[in-house]
Structures are given as C-alpha cells and as structure tokens.
Design a binder for these strands. Structure first.
Lengths: 206, 206
DNA sequence: CAACAAATTACACACATTGTATAACGAGAC
DNA sequence: GTCTCGTTATACAATGTGTGTAATTTGTTG
C-alpha cells in the first residue's frame, strides 16, 4: 500500500520520534550535568530506551553531541546570519548580522555555553564546533570585504583586523559576557553595535 | 594543601621538586590531549612517579587542575591587573589594565584555552575558574566606578553595561579571537582600546 | 494471515579511568 | 642507628565507553 504521508511510514516516524526524545534527553542532561557528567546510560533511561539504542542512532557520545548541535543551530535560525551578510544596505546588513548572532546565541544559552566551551577543552570534539565557526567566519569575511570596498573601515583598521574583531564581538563568549540573563536581546545588539563602531564607521546615511 | 615549600630540608625540596614535575607534566598533557584525555596514570608516568603520588599531592584530578591554574596565574603576573586599576591617571590605568590582561592571556594561551573552556563545560570545575573571574570583575568594577565619577563613560552607557563590556573585551575568549598566533601583544592591546572607545571616552590628554 | 525486515532489547564482555586502601620500602632527618 | 614521611607496589570497587550477539518486538508487505 502506498503511504499517504509524503515523508515516512509510521514505523520510520516512531524511530525518528525516539531519536528526538534521545536528543532532548541528552540536551537536558548536558545542561544540568555538563559533558563529563553526561552518561549515555542516563540519557537512555531518561528517553525510555536502552543504551544500545543510543549507539544504534548516534554511534558514539560524540555523534550524540553533534545531533544536539544541529538541533540548536536549526532552532537558533543560523540562516539569518548568512542572509544578513548579503543585504544591500551595508549598515542594515551589519545590524541584521549582529541581531542574527544574538538571536542564535540566546536561543539556547546554557547549552551553547557547554558546546562552545567543549571545543576548547577536548580536541576530539573541536572539529564539530570548528566546522560551524568557519561558516561564521566566511560570513563576516564577506561582510568586511564589502565594508572595505565602501571605505567604511576606520582608518588604521585592516580588513583582517576587522574580521577578527567582528568575529570576536559576535562570538558566543562575548554575547554571554555582555547580555544579562534577563535582558532583552535588543539591548545587547545595541551595545555590540556601539563596540563595533570603534572599527567600522556606522554613522551617516546609507 | 601542601606547604609553602620552605625548602629548609633537602627532603622537602625533593618533594616540592616532584610536585613541580607533576604540574609540568600535567600541563603538557592537558594542552596536547585536552581534559578528557588527561589521565593521571600518564601524568604520573611522565613525571616518573606512581599514580598514588599524584593523589598524595593533589587529592584528585580537580586538585591537580587547580595547581596548574595557580601556576599559570603566577606566570602571567595577574597582580599587574589589580595594580593597574589603581593607577592615578585614568587613561593610563585603562591602558595598563588592558595590557595586563593581554599579558596574562598570552602567557600560556593554549593552556588557558582549555582551562577557561573547562569552566563552561563541567560544573565541577567551574568553581576553580569562577573564583579567579570574580577577582577580575572586582577590578573592572573599581575601574568603571572611577571612570563614571570622572564622567568618562559615553552618554547612554550605564556603569553596569560598562563593566560587562570591559569584562567581555578583556576576557580570554576575546583575546584568543582577536590576537593572531604570532602577532605582538601590543597590536591586540591597541585594537582592544579602540573597541573600548565605543564605551569610554579615551580621547583628550592624560 | 504469514513471512519479512528493521529496530530494539537483554545480556555479556573488554577496556580505560578515577579514587581508595594497605603493607612494604627507602632515603633523608634527628 | 633509629624514625618519619613520602613513595611504591598491588589490589580493589565503582563508573563509563564501546562492541557483540541472540532473542524479541513491531510495523511492513506479499
């Protein structure tokens, strides 16, 4: 019988559902106990399956981590960042890029704190994070290239410096240090733009 | 906790020497393999002692970590930061504080990358790093207080925002993102001061 | 319905690591 | 020449990762 559901059979949906539950359980435990305290046994129990099932789905603890990372990237709407870098008006492009960054970082702050930190702690997990970070760098490199062409970099600031500075300012670490736990994202966006103005000329009309 | 290593007897010196070797070995392994890959067995072997000796000295893996942290704090000359905050001339005080931060962060960059990241990854180790971070915050709070009193904060920037911004800008994460691996620290100091100028009025003569 | 295929379970295993315990040992301290 | 204290050797318990295998459930399919 041909299945009505364009995507899956009911069985495949059940498998996907279990996978979802596992990622969710791992997510919560990663936040509450940290990476070292995250045991696959507990993840499995919390999701109501066996540890073996976890391995069937993700292969290893690292694989599970990657799945968590993908989930947060989707939820945080990373695509907004890439989109912003191509916006015609440069000032608006920067504002949108900064706003997209803050949106991403605030989408799941505690989880990202673990994830980003992990890359610095454990060489094995670094590649997972670095891959995403390179895409972020490409975005800012593109944006700075446009800024340089428009003569909007402040005198004495090289494009290379500008890329590093904007990467640093819009990194998760900076967001996490800047944004008070309960403050609206907009306030942090404004503060970041203010700091960016030390590097880029944001005054005047577009 | 161990002694202040009075080194009166030759024996005490031998013990202190072993401890030194252990910290050094752990340091290298932490950098090369990360925290997760750092096994006390290997640390002991590298230092030419038994694993039990490691426990005699540090009590646990966390204790060893703390010892490593203390060593890098000393080598990085943290005291310069506190000293800078009290320098009479405010512009010079800021410059010195930023310079002291860069000096600290560049003193052992790869190690600090692990150490700082660890705090975000593992709740158990967080306290070790947080303790130091609080001292850093106290320093910048003091400095910002002086800046606010002198009317040097840019209009629209609250003291609270200024503290968070300066903390963020002079954090290890920002330094690590800003400074190219081979660049002289001075270049990074200049870039940081430029970014800080978005928050603080650094123009005019001191 | 019955055969099938795929995912999951229950169970066992090898291996690494942390942390503890205890008796024997050895070199400097007195 | 003892004595003390750190160290060694060794064993042990507790966890956690990752693999393997047979049995079992559960949709799918002919």
């Amino acid at each position: 019988m041909s299945n009505r559901t364009a995507c899956e059979t009911e069985r495949a949906r059940a498998v996907a559902r279990r996978r979802e539950l596992l990622v969710e359980a791992a997510h919560e435990l990663l936040v509450s106990r940290g990476f070292h305290g995250l045991s696959l046994e507990e993840v499995a129990r919390k999701a109501g399956v066996t540890r073996k099932t976890v391995y069937n789905h993700f292969g290893s603890k690292l694989g599970l981590l990657e799945a968590i990372f993908d989930a947060v990237a989707t939820k945080g709407e990373v695509w907004r960042l890439m989109e912003a870098a191509e916006f015609p008006d440069l000032r608006e492009a920067i504002a949108r890029a900064v706003e997209a960054s803050c949106r991403l970082w605030s989408s799941d702050r505690e989880l990202l704190r673990r994830l980003v930190g992990l890359a610095a702690v454990d060489p094995e997990t670094a590649s997972v994070v670095m891959e995403r970070e390179q895409r972020r760098e490409a975005t800012w490199a593109r944006l700075v290239q446009r800024l340089a062409a428009a003569g909007m970099l402040r005198p004495g600031v090289s494009p290379d410096q500008a890329v590093r500075a904007s990467m640093a300012l819009t990194s998760f670490a900076t967001f996490d240090a800047l944004a008070p736990p309960d403050a609206p994202p907009a306030a942090t966006v404004e503060l970041l733009l203010r700091l960016l103005s030390g590097i880029v000329d944001l005054s005047g009309s577009g």
